[in-house]
Amino acid sequence: TTYKLIANGKTLKGETTTEAVDAETAERVFKEYAKKNGVDGEWTYDDATKTFTVTE
């Protein structure tokens, strides 16, 4: 399944996707990606669109 991340960070803005077996796995991947890019904010997830959003 393809999951999408929308990053609304102070230093990183944009979108990326990952293939994962479930939302929990995708969330781990995206949180690691955000951490590597210095983004720390509020996370939301929309199951209907398989989209995570992080906003600083």
Rank of each mutant, 00 (worst) to 15 (best):
residue 42 E to C: 11
residue 27 E to Y: 15
residue 50 K to A: 05
residue 32 E to Y: 06
residue 21 V to R: 12
residue 26 A to V: 02
residue 20 A to R: 02
residue 38 G to F: 06
residue 15 E to D: 06
residue 49 T to P: 01
residue 9 G to L: 15
residue 7 A to G: 05
residue 40 D to T: 13
residue 52 F to I: 01
residue 8 N to A: 10
residue 26 A to D: 00
residue 10 K to M: 14
residue 46 D to L: 04
residue 23 A to D: 05
residue 4 K to V: 11
residue 43 W to D: 00
residue 29 V to G: 04
residue 53 T to Y: 14
residue 29 V to H: 14
residue 8 N to E: 09
residue 42 E to T: 14
residue 48 A to N: 11
residue 3 Y to G: 01
residue 1 T to A: 12
residue 9 G to Q: 05
residue 52 F to T: 01
residue 34 A to Q: 02
residue 41 G to W: 06
residue 49 T to C: 04
residue 22 D to K: 03
residue 32 E to Q: 09
residue 1 T to C: 11
residue 49 T to K: 07
residue 45 Y to L: 02
residue 36 K to G: 07
residue 31 K to E: 03
residue 12 L to F: 15
residue 55 T to C: 08
residue 26 A to P: 00
residue 44 T to S: 13
residue 33 Y to G: 02
residue 23 A to E: 07
residue 51 T to D: 01
residue 20 A to V: 04
residue 51 T to E: 04
residue 29 V to P: 00
residue 44 T to R: 09
residue 33 Y to D: 02
residue 50 K to H: 12
residue 55 T to Y: 09
residue 56 E to C: 06
residue 11 T to C: 15
residue 37 N to I: 09
residue 45 Y to C: 01
residue 23 A to F: 14
residue 38 G to H: 08
residue 41 G to F: 03
residue 47 D to G: 08
residue 6 I to L: 08
residue 28 R to A: 11
residue 49 T to Q: 06
residue 53 T to E: 05
residue 25 T to L: 05
residue 23 A to C: 12
residue 27 E to M: 14
residue 44 T to L: 07
residue 5 L to S: 01
residue 17 T to P: 02
residue 43 W to G: 00
residue 21 V to M: 13
residue 10 K to L: 14
residue 47 D to F: 07
residue 5 L to F: 08
residue 45 Y to I: 01
residue 39 V to H: 05
residue 49 T to E: 06
residue 53 T to V: 08
residue 31 K to P: 00
residue 2 T to C: 09
residue 19 E to Q: 14
residue 26 A to R: 00
residue 33 Y to S: 02
residue 46 D to F: 04
residue 25 T to Q: 14
residue 13 K to S: 11
residue 21 V to Q: 14
residue 14 G to P: 08
residue 33 Y to T: 04
residue 11 T to M: 10
residue 39 V to W: 15
residue 16 T to R: 09
residue 31 K to S: 04
residue 1 T to P: 07
residue 10 K to G: 11
residue 44 T to V: 10
residue 13 K to P: 09
residue 31 K to N: 04
residue 2 T to H: 07
residue 21 V to C: 12
residue 3 Y to T: 01
residue 40 D to G: 07
residue 31 K to G: 03
residue 6 I to G: 02
residue 20 A to I: 02
residue 20 A to G: 04
residue 51 T to Q: 04
residue 46 D to V: 05
residue 4 K to C: 05
residue 33 Y to V: 06
residue 45 Y to F: 07
residue 37 N to D: 03
residue 5 L to Y: 03
residue 4 K to I: 12
residue 12 L to H: 14
residue 11 T to W: 14
residue 17 T to M: 11
residue 50 K to V: 03
residue 52 F to R: 00
residue 15 E to F: 09
residue 37 N to G: 04
residue 48 A to W: 08
residue 7 A to S: 12
residue 24 E to F: 10
residue 37 N to K: 10
residue 42 E to P: 04
residue 45 Y to T: 00
residue 13 K to D: 06
residue 24 E to G: 09
residue 50 K to Q: 10
residue 50 K to D: 02
residue 23 A to Y: 15
residue 24 E to V: 11
residue 30 F to V: 01
residue 56 E to W: 09
residue 45 Y to A: 00
residue 1 T to E: 11
residue 45 Y to E: 00
residue 53 T to S: 06
residue 14 G to T: 14
residue 22 D to R: 03
residue 34 A to S: 05
residue 28 R to K: 13
residue 26 A to N: 00
residue 50 K to L: 08
residue 48 A to S: 12
residue 9 G to W: 06
residue 35 K to R: 14
residue 35 K to D: 08
residue 26 A to L: 01
residue 25 T to Y: 07
residue 2 T to G: 04
residue 1 T to Y: 13
residue 44 T to G: 06
residue 44 T to K: 10
residue 19 E to R: 13
residue 1 T to L: 10
residue 19 E to S: 10
residue 49 T to F: 05
residue 14 G to E: 10
residue 13 K to L: 12
residue 19 E to P: 04
residue 13 K to A: 10
residue 12 L to E: 06
residue 49 T to R: 06
residue 14 G to N: 09
residue 18 T to E: 04
residue 37 N to L: 12
residue 52 F to H: 01
residue 2 T to L: 14
residue 19 E to A: 08
residue 16 T to G: 04
residue 38 G to V: 03
residue 54 V to M: 06
residue 33 Y to M: 06
residue 32 E to M: 07
residue 2 T to A: 05
residue 15 E to C: 14
residue 56 E to P: 07
residue 36 K to E: 13
residue 39 V to M: 12
residue 25 T to W: 07
residue 12 L to C: 14
residue 53 T to N: 05
residue 14 G to A: 12
residue 48 A to H: 11
residue 46 D to A: 04
residue 43 W to K: 00
residue 29 V to M: 10
residue 10 K to Q: 13
residue 40 D to P: 03
residue 43 W to M: 04
residue 14 G to L: 15
residue 47 D to R: 06
residue 44 T to I: 08
residue 12 L to Y: 15
residue 2 T to K: 11
residue 48 A to V: 12
residue 50 K to T: 03
residue 41 G to E: 02
residue 42 E to R: 09
residue 12 L to K: 04
residue 50 K to P: 00
residue 23 A to H: 10
residue 21 V to F: 12
residue 41 G to R: 01
residue 17 T to W: 14
residue 15 E to I: 09
residue 45 Y to V: 01
residue 20 A to P: 02
residue 19 E to G: 04
residue 5 L to C: 06
residue 27 E to K: 09
residue 30 F to W: 02
residue 15 E to H: 08
residue 9 G to F: 12
residue 28 R to Q: 11
residue 45 Y to P: 00
residue 9 G to D: 04
residue 37 N to F: 13
residue 49 T to I: 06
residue 29 V to K: 08
residue 24 E to Y: 10
residue 1 T to R: 10
residue 46 D to S: 06
residue 18 T to F: 12
residue 21 V to I: 14
residue 11 T to V: 13
residue 35 K to F: 12
residue 6 I to F: 06
residue 13 K to Y: 13
residue 40 D to R: 12
residue 36 K to S: 13
residue 10 K to H: 13
residue 50 K to W: 05
residue 23 A to Q: 13
residue 3 Y to W: 05
residue 44 T to M: 10
residue 23 A to G: 04
residue 12 L to P: 04
residue 14 G to R: 10
residue 1 T to W: 12
residue 26 A to Y: 00
residue 56 E to T: 07
residue 3 Y to A: 01
residue 38 G to Q: 08
residue 37 N to P: 01
residue 56 E to Q: 08
residue 55 T to E: 07
residue 13 K to E: 07
residue 20 A to D: 03
residue 32 E to S: 07
residue 23 A to W: 14
residue 2 T to S: 07
residue 20 A to H: 02
residue 36 K to H: 10
residue 46 D to I: 04
residue 30 F to Y: 02
residue 6 I to N: 05
residue 1 T to K: 09
residue 24 E to S: 10
